[in-house]
Write a protein that binds this DNA or RNA. Structure first.
Length: 563
RNA sequence: GUACCCGUAGUUCAGCUGGAUAGAAUUCACGACUCCGACUCGUGCGGUCGCGCGUUCGAAUCGCGCCGGGUACACCA
């Protein structure tokens, strides 16, 4: 329900100004006691050469009230509008009930494709909490954009290319043990990789052997490829286990190696457009005009780099998916890299480069410093999830021993808590990981939102269906009205989350909605003898339940009926 | 050295396309509810919004300069 547009037209009439301009000056007062909408008169003061206080008083009288406004009031330099709560409740409930569990769904994305590159696991590296941000943010954006009608393509841009894999195969050939690898999978591979680096410090010739194996991969050597594909399969198998737990999907696993045969075409294009220049033995694209350091495209030895591959990937994605937006959910360490890539694409004359965006996020570190895979200083994501589920399980045993399906509920809540905590601040901020913080279920957390959902679910279950109709007078109090206004904000909030690529808007919203509902729930009994009032209150609880469930689902979090 | 990002209650964070007394959560201290399903609700304590100057009727929010922290800057990805 969008009332501000209608209201701003009336204001524009009275103040003899542009409706769009009036809408810009229309805001929400800091305290609901002041009203539901407020028009700021300060900027008019200059034009009219009158004090804002006087303008506000005059306008308050002059403005023709739309049917949904019950009264206006001039306060300081503001004209405050109070909505007719009965009208508001009736219209909101009508909209909410018509939408059912699809509240907030939109079609603004119809016919447009959004490509999202996220998670992007590295072959032979364990899935640790450092990978959670990209995975959770990307997955949430995937679901949010889909809900808004976009066609979404989730890409897991596998880190499956580079000299490191030659080294890994070399290590495997020297010390590998098939049984151990079959049993320990990625951690066995990591062990081999770490051992290689240790031994290479003593014996430099090992690096040559590693390089030789990488060359074999590049040349398509059968044995090298077979081993590498095996390692890839093991890594993906582990990653997919985590993806299932987190409810994360991908449409493509085209990684770095996938673009190998597409690089020559990019190089040809760069040459044809006279962008490639020799510098210190290597080939670069100069970006002085853009205020950026040159982008290195080819090494002195003629081999390609990360940037080259990313250019090929961007062109491939445009050609294959004809994206409207092309998002890279990658840590902020790479922001210069992406600026350069986008600048080169623009220089190549690709206007679609404007649709490419780096969705940067902060880094995750530990109390005692940065994580290091090679040193084994990491926290595995699966360990975090397991601990969280175990803790939840213990709480359930204590608080609700009679609950059915304890295992699934424990898993929904435990895993949900981890995702929620990852998405509960703006993505650019750094995070110091601590078990205490992630495993804290008090306050603004996933379990709090899930708990509120089960409260609503319980009411909905208990409420007996009937045809008596709703008495909206039950929803006119401050608390219920605040809940209705929160519900009204949901669709717009989703649009903002998509526009800004900030899943955290959803997290924040869910907390606010849950708080508003709990306040209401505490003050008023929902089910009582008055059937019509009960119907109205239960319908509100049902709308809150649907919205909480939907919001959680968009973050990849389940909403159990009972807990 | 250069560029980008961050700096708001003890702590973790909102608010930053300028607007009314700067908000939560958490901790601590009280209190309510003990119910429609527990982790619920309320009150209190707690802030030179890093510092300074400027723009503006009005700045946590915009600009400039500092300070502190982080990240990145050519042959890794």
């Amino acid at each position: 329900m969008e009332l501000k547009t209608a209201l701003s037209q009336k204001i524009a009439q009275a103040a003899e100004m542009d409706a769009a301009q009036a809408e810009q000056l229309l805001e929400t007062p800091p305290d609901p006691k002041m009203g539901d909408a407020a028009f700021a008169c300060f900027s008019l003061a200059k034009v009219l050469r009158k004090s804002p206080v006087m303008i506000a008083q005059e306008l308050a009288e002059k403005i023709e009230k739309p049917e949904f406004v019950s009264r206006t009031e001039a306060l300081g330099g503001y004209v405050n509008f109070f909505y007719d709560r009965e009208f508001y409740a009736r219209e909101m409930m009508r909209e909410l009930q018509a939408a059912g569990d699809a509240w907030g769904r939109a079609d603004i994305g119809a016919g447009k494709t959004v490509v999202i590159d996220y998670s992007s696991v590295n072959i032979a590296k364990p899935f640790h909490i450092g990978h959670l941000s990209s995975t959770a943010i990307g997955s949430a954006l995937y679901k949010i954009n889909k809900y808004l009608g976009y066609n979404v393509v989730g890409v897991n841009h596998l880190g499956d290319w580079g000299t490191q894999f030659g080294k890994l195969i070399a290590a495997y050939k020297m010390w590998g043990n098939d049984e151990e690898i079959a049993r320990d999978s990625v951690s066995a591979l990591l062990k081999l990789y770490v051992r290689f680096h240790e031994e290479a410090e003593k014996d430099e010739s090992l690096n040559d052997i590693g390089r030789a194996w990488f060359k074999k991969i590049e040349e398509g050597d059968e044995e090298a490829l077979r081993i590498f594909e095996w390692f890839k399969k093991l890594t993906l198998k582990e990653a997919k286990r985590v993806y299932t737990l987190l409810d994360v999907q991908f449409d493509s696993f085209a990684g770095e190696s996938f673009y190998n045969d597409k690089i020559p075409a990019v190089l040809d294009e760069l040459r044809a457009k006279n962008l490639l220049e020799k510098s210190e033995g290597a080939y670069v694209v100069h970006l002085e005009e853009e205020g950026l350091p040159p982008a290195l495209i080819l090494k002195s030895d003629g081999t390609t780099l990360y940037a080259t591959r990313d250019l090929a990937a961007a062109e491939y994605r445009k050609k294959t998916y004809d994206f409207y937006k092309n998002l890279y959910v990658v840590a902020y360490q790479q922001s210069l890299h992406f600026k350069q890539i986008f600048a080169v694409l623009k220089k190549m004359g690709h206007e679609w480069a404007a649709g490419c965006e780096h969705v940067a996020f902060g880094m995750v570190s530990l109390d005692d410093g940065v994580m290091s895979t090679r040193k084994g200083k990491i926290v595995l994501l699966e360990d975090v999830l397991t601990k969280s589920v175990e803790k939840t399980r213990a709480i359930i045993e204590e608080k609700s021993p009679g609950l059915e399906d304890k295992d699934n509920v424990a898993s929904d809540i435990g895993i949900g808590a981890v995702i929620f905590s990852t998405l509960s601040q703006s993505r650019i901020k750094d995070i110091t990981f601590s078990f205490d913080r992630v495993l804290n279920f008090d306050g603004e957390t996933g379990p709090y939102v899930q708990y509120t959902h089960t409260r609503c679910a319980s009411v909905v279950r208990k409420h007996e269906k009937n045809d008596a109709g709703m008495d909206m007078s039950a929803l006119l109090n401050d608390e219920a009205f605040a809940v209705l206004k929160m519900l009204n904000a949901f669709p717009n909030m989703l649009l903002m989350a998509s526009e800004k690529n900030e899943p955290f808007y959803v997290t924040r919203y869910l907390i606010d909605l849950a708080q508003a509902f709990n306040k209401y729930y505490y003050e008023y009994r929902i089910i009582d003898e008055d059937v019509q009032k009960t119907n109205a209150r239960a319908a509100l609880a049902c709308a809150v339940k649907n919205t909480l469930k939907r919001g959680l689902a968009l973050l990849g979090i389940k909403a159990p009926e009972k807990m």
